[in-house]
Amino acid sequence: MDSFLSLFEQYDVAAAFWVNIQLTFWAAIWSLLLGTLLALFRISPIASLQWFGATYVNIFRNTPLTIIIAFGVLALFGQLSVSLSSDFNLNFFRLAILGLSLYHAAFVCEAIRSGVNTVPLGQAEAARAIGLSFLPAARLVILPQAFRGAIAPLGNVLIALTKNSTVAAAGSVAESAGLMKTMIEFRSDMVIPIFFTFAFGFVLIVIPIGLLTTWASKKLAVSR
């Protein structure tokens, strides 16, 4: 037991998890914004926008996240010198957020589209009939109902995002998965407890997300 506790004196596990939470937080916001925009493209009456939305989703949903994150560091930064901060570590942190956001936006888009499918066609027709054009109709009538119908699938995307934030280790961000690798290397006597520590850490973060989204999807459901 003492040697297990000594792990936490030797390594700052909480700080590493905090990095994952921050990655998740920012990537959640950006992917929600981008995903909503993509969903708007996909339901818009303009064919070229529909095409762009569909193509984006197909490319990013079907590319492994590790490749996207590695591309950010090795190609965007390494080859093309795209830098999101002059601070070395902050740059990698932001590149990881960029990769996570681009990837999960595809899933957010599809979750919102599934929400749009919960809105009866008559709602859009009624909006058009009082003279609302596409954007106001989407903003005032369709999306507010679609979001409320998409809370559960959006929650699933958020849960996946939380766990996928560990892939940022591939992008040189010092977060929990990276720390775990280091700890296993130097404390091979404690391999199994180290694994369980990190597994438990994620379960602790993810369970409230699941509970919250289940509660919210019931609470906010549109009654028809």
Binding site: P120, G122, Q123, E125, A126, A127, A129, V141, Q145, V222, S223, R224
Partner: peptide, 8 residues
């Protein structure tokens, strides 16, 4: 409309 279609 037949089905009212009030904004739910």
């Amino acid at each position: 409309f037949q089905s009212f279609n009030l904004f739910a």
